[in-house]
């Protein structure tokens, strides 16, 4: 296994095939959770957890899954890990769990995870599937945290809950839904520019 290939598989999830800005997947959660950096980090972790383990299991089973039922199988696998991360977060980090609310169970319909199972994990080795999952998960988390940073700093004057400036008039709209749409639109535009 040459390490250049591994590196490529990992890096593609960050830039060229960034799941959020490039492939346009997983948008609902990105828009909704990006009001605070702390919550964004929790969401990124939860999503990556589910993605990695789903990819592992789907890859392990890849030669046994009858093609006709592969979608239901993916769904059961992803839903299982989503529920596991839901229960674990509720038990060990209840505050973040409460802030993320309904978006934790919604990880199961996060298009990124199903897309990677279908497009990659079912055709590749477990090791490569893990690399793919880590790259995609990281790409997702990074975008989520960038947007959350922009929104929290300009809209609330804080970062991870810590007040940054003294007397600061926050740009309220950033914390509200329109702020999310506008930020992500601009970021997508920038990403397109960069890729040229």
């Amino acid at each position: 296994m040459n390490s250049k290939k591994i590196q490529n598989e990992f890096v593609k999830g960050l830039i060229s095939e960034n799941p959020v800005l490039g492939l346009m997947l997983g948008l609902c959660s990105v828009l909704a959770v990006s009001t605070e950096v702390k919550n964004a980090a929790g969401m990124g972790f939860a999503m990556t957890f589910v993605l990695v383990f789903s990819n592992i299991l789907v890859s392990l089973l890849r030669n046994t899954i009858p093609p006709k039922v592969r979608l239901p199988v993916f769904i059961v696998v992803i839903a299982t890990f989503t529920t596991i991360v839901d229960l674990l977060m509720n038990a060990y980090v209840p505050e973040i769990h409460k802030n993320l609310g309904i978006f934790i169970p919604l990880i199961v319909v996060n298009c990124i995870i199903i897309a990677r199972a279908e497009a990659f994990a079912v055709k590749n080795t477990v090791f490569m599937s893990v690399i793919d999952a880590l790259g995609m998960g990281l790409g997702y988390t990074i975008v989520l945290m960038i947007i959350a940073s922009l929104r929290e700093i300009t809209g609330n004057g804080t970062f991870w809950g810590i007040k940054l400036f003294g007397d600061f008039s926050p740009i309220l709209i950033m914390m509200l839904p329109p702020g999310a749409f506008i930020t992500i639109g601009l970021l997508m535009g920038i990403m397109r520019r960069v890729k040229k």
């Binding site: 899954i65 696998v77 229960l87 060990y92």
Partner: peptide
């Protein structure tokens, strides 16, 4: 059959996880 097996394994692992996390929650 295949689906049934997958669902059963899933159900069992969830029941186990729930068993361990429920008291804490």
């Amino acid at each position: 059959m295949y689906l049934l097996i997958v669902c059963s394994v899933s159900g069992i692992s969830l029941a186990v996880t729930n068993h361990f996390t429920a008291p804490r929650i």
